[in-house]
Computed example of a mutant assay.
Amino acid sequence: MQRMGMVIGLQPGKIEEYKRLHAAVWPEIIDLISRCNVKNYSIFLKEPENMLFGYWEYHGTDFEADMAKMAADPKNQEWWSFCIPCQKPFETRQEGEWWAMMEQVFHMD
């Protein structure tokens, strides 16, 4: 299992829309995330900075393949068509990232 943290900004005028979307995530999206070997997924919002922090646990063996499967799914592409306009990625993210991945520096069981 691999613990993963990531951050992204949230457009100031889109906070309520993003909260509304995530208060009722489509069942197909939840199922897809599970089929891509992601568990214990949470997103937190820090205001007034409008920063989202995401955390999940990856339980698969081929992260790139699972993320490609997730990205290629038509229902997920539709979901992202609502979510992506709400987000404001960090300029310092790595090439190919939308959410900026973070290095885990501590964990306590």
Rank of each mutant, 00 (worst) to 15 (best):
A24M: 11
F44L: 14
A24C: 13
E49M: 03
A23V: 01
N50I: 01
E49C: 00
L52Y: 08
Y55R: 05
T61Y: 06
F53T: 06
V25D: 05
F63L: 12
R35K: 15
K46H: 02
Y41I: 03
S42R: 06
I43C: 07
G60W: 11
N37K: 13
A23Y: 07
P27K: 15
P27C: 12
E49Q: 09
G54V: 09
V25G: 04
L45A: 05
W26G: 02
N40A: 11
M51N: 01
E28Q: 05
G54W: 06
Y58N: 06
C36H: 11
I29C: 06
A65I: 03
T61M: 10
A23N: 15
G60F: 12
F53I: 10
K46G: 02
L21D: 09
S34R: 13
L45Q: 09
M51T: 03
E49H: 04
Y55F: 15
A23I: 03
V25M: 07
P48Y: 10
Y41N: 00
I30Q: 02
I29D: 05
I30H: 04
F53C: 04
E47W: 01
L21I: 15
A65L: 10
H22I: 02
V38Y: 00
H22R: 03
N37Q: 11
V25Y: 01
D31T: 06
I43P: 00
T61W: 04
V25Q: 09
Y58S: 06
P48R: 10
E47H: 03
I30G: 00
K46V: 02
E64C: 04
E57P: 13
I29M: 11
N50F: 10
I30M: 03
S34W: 13
F53H: 06
G54K: 13
E28L: 00
E49R: 03
P27Q: 15
V38K: 13
F63Y: 14
H22D: 10
E28R: 04
G54C: 14
N40T: 01
N40D: 11
G54E: 15
G60H: 07
N40P: 00
M51A: 03
N50T: 02
I30F: 01
E47K: 05
N50H: 13
A65H: 11
K39E: 08
Y41K: 04
H22M: 01
R35H: 14
L21C: 05
W26T: 03
E49K: 05
Y58I: 04
L52S: 00
N37I: 02
A24R: 14
S42M: 05
S34L: 09
F44Y: 15
H22E: 04
T61N: 13
F44W: 08
A24P: 12
E49I: 02
W56N: 03
S42C: 09
Y41P: 00
W26K: 12
H59F: 08
N50G: 02
F63P: 03
N37W: 08
I33L: 07
S34T: 09
W26V: 07
F63N: 01
